Amino acid sequence: MTSEQHASGQYAIVAVASSAGGIQALGALLGALGPDLPVPVLVVQHLDPRHRTLLAEVLTRRTTLGVKLADDQERVKPGTVYLAPPDRHLLVGPEGILTLSNSELVHFVRPSADLLFESVAGAYGSRAIACVLTGTGVDGAMGVDAVKSRGGTVIAEDPETAQFAGMPTAAVGTGAVDFVLRLEEIAAAIRGLVENKRQ
């Protein structure tokens, strides 16, 4: 990262994971983030690998941020949402370079939130925000632990109000979650964090 990027704010990236119920939740979250988010957003949404996904098109209609399926070896840019393609793990390196992988399933899923979060923790450390939304299963729990252990910040959708409580409950159960919020509160929390040192 350049010195300007270090100076421009405490946080440099947001990683979001969702599964069942996630398309609706992502639409609500991304739509509320506003048009000029100063950091990139990486998203793992569990999708059926047998079908071409229209997720980018669906989410583009709900947010003013740029939304696209991630490309291998692409460099992330602020204000853009990068979606893991179906059946590919999404990872990010220290220079903000994305990697797509078809390595083994993790917790029976590919893409895996755990792998995304672990790569974000390794690349960005304390400048990473990880967010777990609605979903079944436990994907993301190991990853939020990694983000927290490197000094990053972790947000989970409130399991009480999430459409599917499995993933947020597993994340909260790690003890690594900093904020447990209703879906409609998460965007404001993220904006508050990423803009905190921009006043």
Rank of each mutant, 00 (worst) to 15 (best):
F164K: 08
L91N: 06
A17W: 01
F164P: 00
S8E: 11
L42Y: 07
K77R: 15
R182D: 15
H89R: 12
D48V: 06
G9F: 10
L181I: 08
L193V: 10
S3F: 07
S119Q: 07
R110T: 00
R50P: 00
A15R: 02
T169S: 15
G93F: 10
V120D: 01
E95C: 02
A165F: 13
V177L: 09
A121G: 06
A12H: 15
A113E: 08
G125D: 11
R50L: 12
T136D: 12
L29T: 02
I155P: 00
G166D: 02
I129V: 15
L83N: 00
P38C: 05
Q73K: 15
H89T: 11
H46N: 10
P168W: 01
S112V: 01
G135A: 04
P85Q: 10
T174Q: 10
E4H: 06
Y124D: 03
A188V: 06
L37V: 05
Q163K: 07
L65V: 03
A130C: 08
N196R: 14
G93Q: 13
H46G: 04
R88V: 00
I155V: 06
G27M: 05
L181S: 08
L59N: 07
A146M: 10
A28S: 14
T80L: 13
D178E: 13
F179P: 00
A25W: 04
V138H: 01
D71A: 14
Y82N: 13
A28I: 15
A15Y: 02
Q163C: 08
V120I: 14
R110A: 00
L116T: 00
Q24A: 10
L59W: 08
G27C: 09
G9R: 11
E57S: 14
S149D: 07
G31H: 03
D72H: 15
V120R: 02
I186P: 04
I155M: 01
R198H: 08
M167E: 07
R52F: 12
V41R: 03
L47D: 06
L69E: 15
A176L: 11
L83C: 06
V41N: 03
A28V: 15
G9W: 09
T161W: 12
L54G: 13
G31T: 09
V39Y: 06
T53R: 02
V44G: 02
T169G: 05
T64G: 05
R75Y: 05
Y82I: 09
A17I: 03
R191T: 11
H6T: 11
D48M: 05
I129L: 12
P168S: 11
P159V: 05
S112L: 03
V194Y: 04
A171H: 03
P38A: 11
V132K: 01
L54D: 11
A170W: 07
L55P: 13
A28Q: 15
V147M: 02
E74W: 12
G96H: 09
S19I: 07
T60N: 06
V43P: 03
V58F: 13
L83V: 02
R61M: 13
S19W: 03
S126I: 00
M167P: 06
H51D: 04
E104G: 14
T64Q: 15
L90Q: 09
G66K: 12
L37W: 05
V120Q: 04
